Each structure stands twice: as C-alpha cells, then as structure tokens.
Amino acid sequence: MCGRFALTATPEELMELFGLLESDDFPVRFNIAPTQPIIVVVAADRAGPGSNLPERKALLVRWGFTPGWVKDPRDFPLLINARAETAIEKASFRAAMRHRRVLVPASGFYEWHRPAKGSGEASQAYWIRPRKGGIVAFAGLMETWSSADGSEVDTAAVLTTSANPAIAPIHDRMPVVIQPEDFARWLDCKTQEPRDVLDLMVPASEDYFEAIPVSDKVNKVANAGADIQEAVIPQLVPKAPVKDDKNGDKPDDGQMSLF
C-alpha cells in the first residue's frame, strides 16, 4: 500500500515535467498523510486544434477517494489506495478508471516492514525514493463527491500493484509508477479505455527505487520536517535462544542481530 509520501519539488520542476498550464506555490511537504490535500495532474481541455497551450493542469484534492454515489462519507471507509488488479471491476473505482485517471506527483513514499507477530523482529520504516532522484508520478484516480446541499469535494486515491523484487522484502504492495513517456496515454480518458492502459499498471523496474531505513518519526503526522528522511541503522532485534540438545537451552550470548 501507500500510506504516506512526500513532495519536495518546486512549482517550476512540476511545470516542466508534467507540462502544466501553471502550478501554485505548493509548500514542500515531507510527510503527506491521508485526508490531507495533495496535488494531482489531470488532462486539460485544449483551446482548439492547433493550440499550443499545455495539455495538463494541477489540482488540489483530498487524499481519500469517495465515490459519487456515497450518501455520507462518514459512513464510508477511507480509500487512499486502489488495487490496480481489480480497480476496473470494483464499483468504487470503475467510473474513475474510465473517466478520471490522474497522476500524483511525489518525491518518494514511506513504507513499513511489519514482521509477523511473535517473530521477535522489530517494525522498520523506510523512505523509498527514485534511485536517480527527481519526481515520480504515481497512477491515481479522482472523483468529485457532491453533498445534498450542492457542495463538492475533489478526492483521489493512489493505485498500487504487487511489489517488485527490491521492495517485496519490505512490503508486498507498491504504488503504480507512470513514466513520462506514458503520461499522455494514462491521462487520455477519451480514447484510451481502461483495458488499453492495463500494461502501465505494473511494478516499477527492480532498480528504479532505493529504500532507506528511517526512524519512526514518520508515524506521527505532526513530524513534518526533513529530518524524518534521515537514514538510521535498522533496528536491532534479539536473537532467539539457541537450543542445545545436551545441555538444554543455552543462554543468549548478548549479541544482537540486524533486522
């Protein structure tokens, strides 16, 4: 899954990569959490044939997808992710997959390795970023929810897929990454049906991301400084006692093993 991410790019960098009409002065954010505003990139209506205006624009939306048919969001689960394998079929995402595909700019995302209960291992947070740096574009879905009084809320979810071999030891899911050469096809909901973009909803190449162990500061939304991305030594966990058939259980030797 993708439950936290960061975006530290400048408006100029976003405009250049995504070909935006404009980009507001969106603040640097190191710990973006569900229900908070996020930037999404959508296809823009062209002025007409031959227009040289940019084809895309940026919007601020709420991270937490709400289907249009929901009567009261308070009675509906918060959908921050959508599984790429089933989004076409799911009632919650079917319409958005056909009509409202978006890109979610990010500098990287956070993931937690949470071992099985009773394993003796400690949980470890990771900052996962493009190995070559720069901005990554997650595949996303957008929906505008309208209340009975006519007010509207733009909402979005990040599409996830099975993790590649590099990320799988940390977590079994990862965000779908859309490469710049595929931006136009992903955002083109007029001629590209969901089945036409299935080939884009696959894990990123094994060498695309690097995972950096970080502290558990990222767990708290209030921690929003650059220090949450500082590398740490992965937490140490005690070795299990070694059993000796002759002398019974040997006491632990006091050494620690790396997670």
Rank of each mutant, 00 (worst) to 15 (best):
F183I: 02
R114L: 07
M174R: 06
T144E: 08
I167M: 15
D188A: 05
E210I: 15
G248F: 05
W186Q: 01
V42R: 10
D244M: 07
K217C: 03
D207Y: 04
L79A: 04
E55I: 04
P175W: 01
F5W: 07
P11N: 11
I170P: 12
R100E: 01
P11R: 09
V41N: 02
A168Q: 15
G133C: 04
A96L: 05
D244E: 08
S151M: 09
K243R: 13
P251G: 09
P49R: 05
G3R: 00
Q235D: 14
P213K: 12
F30I: 01
N31V: 06
L236V: 13
L141E: 01
E230H: 11
E89D: 15
N247C: 08
Q124H: 06
A184M: 07
G150A: 06
V177K: 01
A224Y: 03
V232D: 04
Q179W: 05
D249M: 10
A211T: 08
L236P: 06
A91Q: 11
M1Y: 08
P175G: 04
G19Q: 07
P213A: 10
L198P: 00
R62Q: 12
E22K: 15
K239V: 05
R101H: 03
S146E: 13
M174F: 12
C189Y: 04
R195E: 13
S257N: 05
P194N: 06
K246P: 01
D149I: 05
P54H: 02
R195S: 09
V237P: 00
L59D: 09
D154Y: 02
I135S: 07
A6P: 01
S119D: 03
G248M: 04
V197H: 00
P73R: 11
L187H: 02
R131H: 04
E152A: 12
M97W: 12
Y208L: 09
R56C: 01
L236I: 09
E193L: 14
P27S: 09
T86E: 00
V28L: 09
R56Y: 07
R195L: 10
P27E: 11
T35I: 13
M1S: 11
T66H: 08
T191E: 13
A43H: 01
S123A: 14
V40I: 13
D253H: 03
G140I: 02
V158A: 01
K117G: 11
F259Y: 10
I228F: 04
R100I: 00
A157Q: 06
I88H: 13
A44I: 02
T191Y: 04
D252Q: 09
R4A: 10
S51H: 00
W127Y: 12
W112K: 06
D244I: 05
P241N: 14
P49F: 03
P238H: 05
G19M: 10
S51P: 00
G134S: 05
I128M: 11
I228Y: 05
P234Q: 10
N164C: 12
P11Q: 12
E85A: 08
L258R: 07
S23R: 05
R185A: 14
R195T: 08
P34M: 04
P194A: 03
L198Q: 12
